[in-house]
């Protein structure tokens, strides 16, 4: 509305959150980028150069020339780091695929259930999300450990004779991810399935499709945006996951989120940690842009 566009109030609504996000989200990333091009130093803060805009142009130019891609060549030259990226992407992808397989039937069942029951079922799916993430991951330690409840149960049933080693493996990490991100997959899937017009399936049946044909040729394609949204919502944060690999993973688990933390907190190499973070962002840039695109498109379609 032309009137609203001009109003002070409208400008305020844009300016406040914009400035906040620019200061506390965009600016920090620029700083990360800058530090990733710096060198470590035994100082406070532990990197060099430190820009001080009071020093004038010459000093600034000199310091700018100190920036280089050393950290990147170091990171990319070290097989351990590269392996860490690959493993993060693989584990996140496996977890996302499993989430689709596990989440779709649940979302579908909720969308099919009687109208009055749906908000309750949805609340049941979301409720664990509200309880602590950390606690949910912790709960699996007791289940998956060598003396844990899963092994106890399987042993007493006679299904296995030796306790399985699940905790401290990548399998445990994937289980933890599937568990933790479950609501993030189910919600967008449900939203897509719930919107679907029932008469589409009736039309498919009327035109001779069996229920399973109708499901694969109508329901699944119609809910595709939900699948993509759910997959992105799980995959992107899972790649940089820290808590799950730290608590459920073992020595074989080298996920990148943990590596960043180790570089930062243990090795105190802020510049390498920054370079690692920038590289994660580069890898995730495309999925993040796709995700934002979808969000924006949802916003316009009204």
């Amino acid at each position: 509305m032309s009137i609203e566009r001009r109003s002070m109030f409208s400008r305020f609504t844009v300016a406040m959150p914009f400035l906040w996000l620019a200061a506390f989200f965009l600016l920090p990333f620029l700083i990360v980028l800058k530090i990733s091009l710096s060198d470590d130093a035994v100082a406070q803060p532990p990197y060099a150069p430190v820009f001080n805009f009071g020093e004038g142009w010459a000093a600034l130019r000199e310091k700018l020339s100190m920036l280089d891609f050393e950290n990147y060549s170091f990171v990319l030259g070290d097989w351990l780091y590269v392996y860490s990226y690959m493993q993060s992407l693989t584990l996140a992808a496996v977890a996302t695929a499993l989430l689709i397989v596990v989440g779709y039937p649940v979302a579908y069942a909720i969308a099919r259930s009687p109208r009055g029951l749906r908000p309750i079922l949805l609340l049941l799916v979301i409720l664990p999300f509200f309880t602590s993430f950390l606690i949910r991951v912790y709960a699996w330690i007791g289940i998956l450990s060598r003396e844990g409840l899963l092994n106890q149960m399987l042993l007493s049933l006679g299904a296995i004779s030796q306790p399985m080693e699940i905790l401290a493996t990548n399998a445990a990490v994937v289980i933890g991810m599937v568990y933790s991100y479950f609501p993030f997959m189910v919600l967008p899937l449900y939203a897509a399935l719930e919107k679907m017009d029932d008469t589409l399936l009736e039309a498919a049946a009327d035109l001779g499709a069996t229920p399973s044909q109708a499901f694969w040729r109508v329901t699944v394609p119609v809910s595709a945006p939900g699948i993509v949204a759910g997959a992105l919502l799980c995959f992107i944060p899972a790649v940089g996951e820290f808590v799950i690999p730290d608590l459920l993973g073992g020595s074989e688990t080298q996920m990148i989120g943990r590596t960043v933390w180790n570089e930062f907190a243990v090795n105190r190499s802020w510049s390498v940690a920054s370079a690692l973070a920038v590289l994660i962002l580069l890898v995730l840039l495309v999925p993040i842009l796709i995700y934002q695109r979808m969000q924006l498109r949802d916003l316009e379609r009204r």
Partner: peptide, 12 residues
């Protein structure tokens, strides 16, 4: 919404 927390935390 999707940014890995490690990155957000480090940047801040």
């Amino acid at each position: 919404l999707v940014m890995p927390e490690v990155i957000t935390g480090l940047a801040l």
